[in-house]
Each structure stands twice: as C-alpha cells, then as structure tokens.
Design a protein around this nucleic acid. Sequence first.
DNA 1: GTCTATACACCGATAGAC
DNA 2: GTCTATCGGTGTATAGAC
Lengths: 198, 198
Amino acid sequence: MARLPSAERRRQLTEAAIRAMSRDGVPRTTTRSIAAEAGVSLSVFHYCFDSKQELIESVITTLTDHSVTVVKEAIRPRATLEGTVRAGFQAYWDHVRAHPDEHMLTYELTQYALRQPGFEHLARRQYELYAETYAELIEQLRQTMGFRLRVPVPVLARYLAAMTDGLTLNYLVLGDDAAWTGILDTVTAHIAGLAHET
Amino acid sequence: MARLPSAERRRQLTEAAIRAMSRDGVPRTTTRSIAAEAGVSLSVFHYCFDSKQELIESVITTLTDHSVTVVKEAIRPRATLEGTVRAGFQAYWDHVRAHPDEHMLTYELTQYALRQPGFEHLARRQYELYAETYAELIEQLRQTMGFRLRVPVPVLARYLAAMTDGLTLNYLVLGDDAAWTGILDTVTAHIAGLAHET
DNA sequence: GTCTATACACCGATAGAC
DNA sequence: GTCTATCGGTGTATAGAC
C-alpha cells in the first residue's frame, strides 16, 4: 500500500464515507465498509481518525459547506423580482431532484449529530449557516434590485431556510415530482409579495 | 415472570421502545435496552417480535397515528379565519415545544424507514397521512366558515404539511423559542390571505 | 510516520433446554 | 413461554513490522 501523508488519506476516507453513506445510509455504513470503499485497511482508518465520530464530523462539515455553495449559486438577480425568486427556487429544486441521496444524507447526519452528545453544535452550525446564507443573499438582492421588505431580513431568512427544508424532506419521502410545481408557484408568489419597490 | 398474552407483551414492548428511543435516540436503543425497559428478557422480545424491524414498524404506526391526532385536535373553528389559523398553528407549536423528544423521534424513524428496504411505505404513509389530515381539516373549515381558496385544497394541504414539518425540524435543531413568533405571524397571514369570503 | 495483524466487548439473532 | 448459550458482525484498541 502506497504511503501517503495523513491529510490526503483523511480526504480520501471522507469522500469514500460520503459515497458509502449516500448509497447505504448512515447506520449501515461501517468503518470496515468505508475503509474498503477507500481501498485501505481498517487499521489505516483508525490511524487517520481516532473514531468513527471524528470521521463523521469531517463528513458533516464537508457536506454543509457544499450545500451552502449550492444555495448561493442558485440565486442571482434576473429581470424581475418574481423571476429571480422563481429561478432561485427552481435551481435549488433541480439540484434536489438530481442529487436526492446527497440531500437525504444531510438529514440523516443532522439527526446523528443531534443525538450524539457533544455533536449538537455541528447540527446547529449547519442550520445557522443556511439561515445566514439566505440572509446574505436577500440583503444582496435588496441592494442590487432595490426593494423593501414587509418583514425583517432575519425572519424571512429563517422562514426560507425552514420552508425549503420542509419541502425538500417531503419531496424525498413522497417523490411525485409533478405535485410540487403548484406549491413552488404559491411559495414564489408569497415571497415576491413580501417585497415592494422603494 | 408473569405469563401474559403475546398481544399485551407487544404493547408493553412498543411503549417501552418509544420511551427508550425518545430518551436515547434510535441507533443507541438496543433490543436488550428495550427488553430491560419493559422488564422482560431478550428472548421474550424475540418471542413477541421476529426482529427489531418488526418492533420498529409497530412504533412507527403508533406514533404516526398519534401525530395525526395532535394536528386534528389543534384546528377547530374560531371567530375569524385568521384567528382560526393562528390558534391552530399555536396549538401545534405548543405541542412541539412541550414534547420535542417525541417529534425528534418521528424524524429519526422516518429516516430509518426510508433507508430500510421494504419500509419505505411506512415513511410515505406517514407523510401522506399528514397531507390528507390537513386536506380534511381545510375542507371541513371551508364548509363551516364559508370561504373560497385561491389554490387547490391538495396543494395547500401539502404545502402546510411540508412547511410545518420544516419549521418543526428547524426549531428542534436551533431552539431559540422567541425567534419563531415572527415567522408564525408571517405564515399565518399568508395562509389566511389565500382564502377569501364567498 | 505509516501500515498490518490481532484481540476485545457489544450488538442482533437463533437454537434448544426447561 | 421463558431462559441460557452461542453465532457472525460491528466499533474500537493496541502491539509491533516497515
């Protein structure tokens, strides 16, 4: 087995864990299966990570940063405010439909973190980061496109984060792609209606 | 050990499992800990249930029916439509704040069911039942209080189910009780605004 | 520092005695 | 119906080779 620096091995094992957990689910993913997926022995795993928890912490931070990137890239100014909101939701929704396993995994890891003593902060960081990301994007759009909001930015940001979270989870459970267009339309109209021109 | 009929033992074990899982989380709840919580031996457990999966199926159906009852009891006609919606959200929200562990457990069990081959139908049944319950309540309120809706009932029902689900999960992760009143106000105004008098 | 081999306690599940 | 013994598999730890 090639001798690689520990940092590189950690990256390999983290990516292997994301693949294995997305495919098999968190509970069924064992340290042995992660090591096999990365092509190393179980002992190498425990040389790079003190425990399975430490590996999962690495997985959570990696995936959280990725999700924030997805949301940030989904939203950018268009011709009208309603069009901007619609395109943003659509881009995010397309990502959910294209990568359901990855989104499912983030929910599983949230539950894992909430139940693991000393890991609650990772779940909170994840959800706070979502709300902060939405808040930044709203503020940015507000300045670029010029409008006022009928509700405070932090309230709208948390509402957006929670609502998209709920829609995503319900889609992952129920599927039925066609059923959500009407809901996205209703939500889009609501959000756009919360803003008015200055 | 007293010799009880198998059906009674199943009920005891199901209730013991709900207590143990709410307290310790699903992954940490072992068949041995459930048996101990119910005051029986491990073998009695495997006499009443073929597997841990079969016990969990019993837990899921029990809790799903309970959640539906909570939502149904939360919503009943008041003086105004906005007041009805507000009181409904408030009653549901009070239940979430009073029993966070039970709500957390339902999310964990949803994830469990989605990942367990042959159990996906339990997760779907759960979420379909929520949407159906909301649809029934909307229809019932519509006839009692007399109003029309700007969106089809099934769309509004699914939207309500998904949104309350997302708000609940975000509250369970972030806590911060005070932060959600503004969001509940915004949502209440939106939902009430989707209806108009006939 | 990196990797191999092996051992241990615990889990879910089952067979078989009483 | 109830219990003991036991199985393969899991997370974790460590002694020691390279």
